[in-house]
């Protein structure tokens, strides 16, 4: 990285400047400015309705910004187009798992590996390179045996794993996971944790939303706490979690 702007330096990979999103009269995200470090894992926490998922939707272009700017690796964007996010180096998973249901597990992975341009894609068949990548990813998330099943026939935990695998298949720097641990059995949970740790150790920026404070303490290095669409606090995990406002927001005191 050589072309990082002077103000943010190389430390932060993803920043927002006064971004906001309104649903009717409700400000889901309200003039939010955050900065997420390149190194390590960052978790986003906050009570229900604090704007965590909306933030992820804004960062991934799934929802349009009402105002403000997203800065991805030094590139400022007032309009984040969903189809451009992989090129900017971002991919994501969804809170309610969103797979391509009526196609196979195999095709769910293949579809994010292949050529993005229209006419080359028409002439392109499944190249050996893609097949190897897909196999590696499916083995990584433990879904290789299930490759010929339809995504809709999988169990909830398997669907979560496949969605994480699909995000892994997009070779980018920033991964946004919206509640990756919700509703998982312990064994699956450990597997998802291991996958995410391996990604971090591989030098990727991993950002996740969670309600489970034990996992947040265990997994993340940095913490962002939201409340009512605003930043409550941010920083190192233990520092942030011990602040009185955070405790108050969580306990409702």
């Amino acid at each position: 990285m050589t072309a990082a702007p002077a103000n943010s330096g190389d430390y932060y990979i993803l920043e927002t400047e006064e971004i906001s999103k309104h649903f009717g009269a409700v400000a889901a995200v309200d003039g939010l400015s955050i900065a997420i470090p390149r190194q390590g894992m960052t978790s986003i926490v906050g009570p229900n309705g604090s704007g965590k998922s909306t933030l992820v939707n804004l960062l991934s272009g799934t929802l349009p910004l009402d105002g403000g700017m997203v800065i991805i690796d030094g590139v400022g964007l007032k309009l984040v187009k969903a189809y451009e996010t992989p090129a900017h180096g971002i991919t994501r998973t969804f809170q309610e798992v969103r797979l391509f249901n009526q196609i196979t597990v195999w095709d769910n992975i293949m579809v994010v590996l292949t050529n993005r341009s229209l006419f080359p894609a028409m002439l392109e068949r499944a190249k050996p390179r893609y097949r190897e990548q897909a196999q590696r990813i499916l083995e990584n998330v433990g879904m290789w045996e299930k490759r010929d099943s339809l995504a809709m026939d999988l169990s909830y935990g398997q669907r979560k794993l496949l969605e994480i695998g699909r995000a892994l298949a997009v070779d980018v720097n920033i991964y946004l996971f919206d509640e990756p641990f919700a509703g998982l059995f312990p064994q699956m949970l450990e597997r998802v944790k291991d996958i995410m740790k391996a990604m971090r150790d591989d030098g990727r920026t991993v950002i996740f939303i969670s309600h489970n404070m034990d996992i947040v303490r265990e997994m993340s290095d940095h913490l962002i706490v939201l409340d009512s669409g605003k930043l409550l606090t941010a920083g190192e995990v233990e520092d942030a979690l011990n602040q009185e406002e955070v405790i108050a927001a969580y306990l409702g005191a």
């Binding site: 799934t62 991919t91 391509f100 249901n101 579809v111």
Partner: peptide, 14 residues
């Protein structure tokens, strides 16, 4: 087929 299943998810993947 991916677009048929979930248009928005397909666009997030580029």
């Amino acid at each position: 087929t991916a677009i048929r299943e979930d248009e928005q998810a397909a666009s997030v993947f580029g």
